Computed example of a mutant assay.
Amino acid sequence: MLSYRHGFHAGNHADVLKHFVLIELLNYLNQKDTAYTYVDTHSGAGLYSLDTGYATKNAEYETGIAPLWDRDDIPTALQAYLDVIKDLNPSGKLRYYPGSPYCADQVMREPDRLRLFELHPSEIKILSENFRKLEAHKAEQGIRPSTRGKRIMINAGDGFDGLKALLPPPSRRALVLIDPPYEVKDDYRRVKVCLEDAAQRFPTGVYAVWYPVLSRIESKQLPERLKRILGNGWLNVTLSISGPSPDGFGLHSSGMFIINPPWTLEATLREVMPYLVRVLGKDAGARYTIESGETEVSKSERPQRTTSQRPVRTSDRNIDARSPRSVATPARQNNRAARPANLNKTRGR
């Protein structure tokens, strides 16, 4: 159970999908002045070196961030994701890749709060050290917090269980990312149970679940089960960079399932996903799917609604499908202080 290290997979196509969607969700929450809480149930190490350690074994980043790195036709909607990674690599050479905690820290505002969980004993040490270095770097530049309370709290424990104590959050606004390794079948069950409990405690929260698209029955059933959880609608997006391998091994496809998604997210995905298929796709099996709809539970609990319910909408495109013309990328604005290139050389998730 504790053998998984995300460093082997850092920056791959699944990370591109996960972190792009995560940053879109965070930027949407940033539009409202009220502070919010971000909860990461499986944080990993938070930051990864791509040219040393685990990431060099299979170089999975070559299926994800690497093909995007030097392109000059990045869609506007994808640029915020690339900006976070570019800021982490000020030399222009792709050496470091951010995990979800780092992405969140860079996009969120000072009054917002991060609550990070990690169970792996080695990963939690690296995660804590990474954020200690970030805080020290800010202090060296004279950047001091202007709000009371601890902005980032790192917890060595099970995020499935730890989430319960954080909901509902004080501000009544929150984004929860659930991203277990799925090394054991029980992870699929625990995702569903965790979300059912969370939705009862805090029905208006935004919940995002990353999951692998595999041939095993648990993977196939997970999205359908999540569609029945209480919420004000759901959105499910998958990205496949190739068809399944003959031996069934390897991750070629993954998905993000969002409960209570922002109303703008589906349109953004329909702009970006054809581009990702075109750039990251390896063969004719490359495709994306987008589904959106309302849960049966949410429908039954809204008797006052008289207008017709929004039907489930799906989209499935293969690599040969004509994608929308990419929007010219505007000059990137970066008002953050430059990060040191040697911020971290971690081995981990």
Rank of each mutant, 00 (worst) to 15 (best):
L116R: 01
N155L: 00
R115S: 10
P145T: 06
D105F: 14
V176S: 02
F117Y: 10
V176R: 01
R109M: 05
A165W: 05
G142Q: 07
I124V: 13
P90C: 02
D83W: 00
P75F: 04
Y102D: 03
I152R: 01
T76H: 15
Q106E: 12
S128F: 04
G157N: 06
K185F: 10
P90L: 03
T76A: 14
R151E: 05
P121R: 03
A174G: 06
K138D: 15
D112R: 07
A80V: 04
S100E: 04
V191Q: 11
R189I: 01
S128V: 01
D186L: 07
D105S: 12
A80T: 09
L82F: 01
A139N: 14
S91V: 09
R95S: 09
V84N: 02
V107H: 00
P180F: 08
K138Q: 15
P181H: 12
R109Q: 08
V193A: 14
I154R: 10
V107D: 04
V193F: 03
K133L: 07
P101F: 06
E129V: 05
A165N: 12
T76Y: 15
S128Q: 08
I124F: 04
H137D: 14
S171D: 07
P101H: 12
D87G: 13
A136E: 11
S122H: 15
C103S: 14
E129D: 13
M153G: 12
D112N: 10
G149S: 05
R144G: 12
I178H: 06
I74S: 11
N130L: 07
E140W: 13
F160Y: 14
T147V: 15
K150A: 11
R95C: 04
A139V: 12
L166R: 11
R144A: 13
G142P: 08
V184K: 15
M108V: 10
P180I: 00
Y102Q: 05
G157I: 04
D112Q: 02
L195K: 05
Y102N: 09
E135T: 15
P169H: 04
G159K: 08
L167I: 07
V84K: 05
L78T: 00
P98V: 08
D112P: 03
V184R: 13
I143K: 09
R151V: 06
A156N: 12
E123V: 03
D105H: 14
R132D: 13
L116C: 00
I74T: 11
D158K: 07
K164W: 07
E183N: 11
E183Q: 11
M108P: 10
C103Y: 14
P90R: 09
I124P: 03
P170F: 03
